[in-house]
Nucleic acid binder design. Structure first.
Lengths: 75, 75
DNA sequence: ATTCAGTAGGGTAATTGGGGGA
DNA sequence: CCTGTCCCAATTACCCTACTGA
C-alpha cells in the first residue's frame, strides 16, 4: 500500500525536480546563471542536504512558456 | 561505441535555442538588428529570467533557408 | 572506499537590453 | 524602410578551488 514512486519515475511525477544543468540547457544559459536566478528569488529551488539546488520542472516549463506561475493546479 | 544520443544535445534538441550573437553571426548582421527583428515580431523569441532573448534555432534556420514560418503575418 | 561529473562560491570580462541619432 | 553605432545599466559567461552526488 505504499504508493511509493520509483525514483526513476521522477521525470513523470508532478513534483519532478531538475538539476541546474537541466534548467540551464532548457534556457540556453550557464548553470551558474540558474543559480543566480534562484538566489535572486526569480526561481524557487529546494536544496539537497548537501547544499545543491533542485528546481521544479513544472515551474521551469511555465517560465519557458512565459506563463506566470501556476501556483495552483489549473484543473 | 553505440551512437547513443545523450538525453539532450542542445543543438539537436527540439527546443534548441540560440543567443543573439549566434543569430547575428548566422545572418551577418549586428545583434541589435536581431533584437529589432524580435521587437518587430519578425522573429519569435523567449526571454531569460534576466530579460535576455533566446531564439529558436529551428525558426532561424528556416528563415535562412527562405522558408516562410507560420508566424509571419505579412500579406 | 574510490573515481568522476556536477555543483557551490566568489570575482572579473564579455554580451545584452534600451533609447537615441546617423 | 532598414541597418550600424553611441551611450548607459543590467545580465550573463568564464576563471578558479572545494565539496556533493551517484
Amino acid at each position: 500500500m505504499s504508493p511509493q514512486i520509483s525514483q526513476q519515475d521522477r521525470t513523470d511525477a508532478p513534483g519532478a525536480l531538475l538539476t541546474p544543468a537541466e534548467v540551464a540547457s532548457m534556457f540556453r544559459v550557464d548553470p551558474k546563471t540558474v543559480t543566480r536566478w534562484a538566489k535572486a528569488g526569480k526561481l524557487s529551488a529546494i536544496r539537497t542536504l548537501g547544499g545543491h539546488r533542485r528546481y521544479s520542472e513544472a515551474e521551469v516549463r511555465g517560465l519557458l512558456h512565459g506563463v506566470p506561475q501556476p501556483r495552483d493546479a489549473e484543473v
